[in-house]
Simulated scan of single mutants.
Amino acid sequence: MNANYIYVALCFIPLVLYLIKLRNFKLNVKKMVVIAMFSGLSFILSKIVFIQYPQGGSINLLSSLPILLIGLIYGPVEGMTTGLITGVLGLFGGYIIHPVQLFLDFIIPPMILGLSGMFGSDSRAKVFFGCLIVVFLKCCVHVVSGVVFFASYAEQFNMGPWLYSIVYNFSCAGVEGFLSLIVATILPLEKIKREANKGYKASA
């Protein structure tokens, strides 16, 4: 079996786990509104180019931050739902050449960001490392997509598909994600979390 098929299959694991957890998940009105707002904010930020690279890549303005915050404030399912909505919004005007590439570039990466609270949010160290891991995994999915679907671009730079995809994606999505996680780490999350959860029990 081609190793690329294995890499692609591994990328779909977060989506499968999300669908399993979604069966017993309930949203209240407040959460739905917040998720919708943060999804829209992430999409808008993704259209604001902070740095444009000559080869076509770019760093946008902290588009990962809203998804990271929802994962930290509410939890993984809410965070992944925010990522899913953001990814669907990104399909409009997105470059799509294959159904699998659609998932690897637009749906799964932002969903992974929603797992930012995997270690909790009660300390800056937990926030930092949780966000760092999901940003890294997000970039890894983009790298697999680059190797499988955009390997021909590597020839222009006399690079192998893996090296080209790693350099391209970590210099774009990786830098943006790292800047977003730094901002997420320095924000007063406990205060934000208390405000976000006010009235939760009453409305649940």
Rank of each mutant, 00 (worst) to 15 (best):
G130V: 08
M37S: 12
L132A: 15
Y153N: 02
L19P: 07
T81M: 14
V77I: 14
F106Y: 15
S123C: 07
P188D: 11
V88T: 10
S171T: 14
N158K: 02
V88H: 02
Q52A: 14
M32E: 15
F38D: 01
R194A: 15
V143A: 08
V88R: 06
A36F: 11
C140P: 00
L84R: 05
V49W: 06
I48R: 09
I67C: 12
L104P: 01
V167W: 01
Y18V: 10
V29L: 15
G87M: 00
L84G: 06
N60F: 11
F103I: 05
V135A: 11
L113D: 10
S180Y: 13
A3T: 05
F178G: 00
L163F: 11
Y74L: 03
Y164W: 15
P14L: 12
S46V: 05
G160I: 06
F128V: 07
N28R: 10
G199V: 11
A125I: 15
L65M: 07
M80G: 04
L27G: 07
S63Q: 10
V144A: 01
R124V: 04
P99L: 13
P188T: 05
G177H: 10
S123Q: 06
C140R: 01
K31D: 09
Y95R: 13
I192D: 10
R194L: 11
L68C: 04
Q156W: 04
G87H: 04
L179M: 13
A173W: 00
G177V: 09
P99M: 14
G40P: 09
K198T: 00
A173M: 03
S152Y: 14
A184N: 03
P161T: 08
